[in-house]
Amino acid sequence: MKKVQGNDSFQRINYLYQISKHMAGINPVLSAYYGNLIVNVAKKNVLKIHPDIKRQICKKCRTMLVDKTSGKMKMRNRNKSKHIEWTCNTCGVKRNFPANKGKDHRVWLERPEAVEEVIN
């Protein structure tokens, strides 16, 4: 069986992500602490956080963003292009993601052709 490099750290990030998301609505301080830990673990082990997870962490205070509990999600129009705006309830920072109809905004990692091999 092939082993994935940094598997235990990935598992750890996965676990921290779950508990950080759980604490997001209850205690933003702890959520930020776990979110901060995710970033630090990935930094120390030189691993990439999956973009799906990374987008949910607030860039400023590193709380996990969940709609209507720890953040607000809104569709906005600007210059005829749509984007999703996330607002963090803890620190008030705004973040935009483009979301145009008929356009593919996925990054390379999310596309199906990026998957080289699946190791269980």
Binding site: M23, A32, Y33
Partner: peptide
């Protein structure tokens, strides 16, 4: 924002059980 201090009675046990 209070990130450094966790007051003594701020966290409930029932909130942490799922963890």
């Amino acid at each position: 924002l209070g990130f450094y201090a966790i007051p003594r009675d701020s966290v409930k046990y029932s909130e942490v059980v799922p963890l």
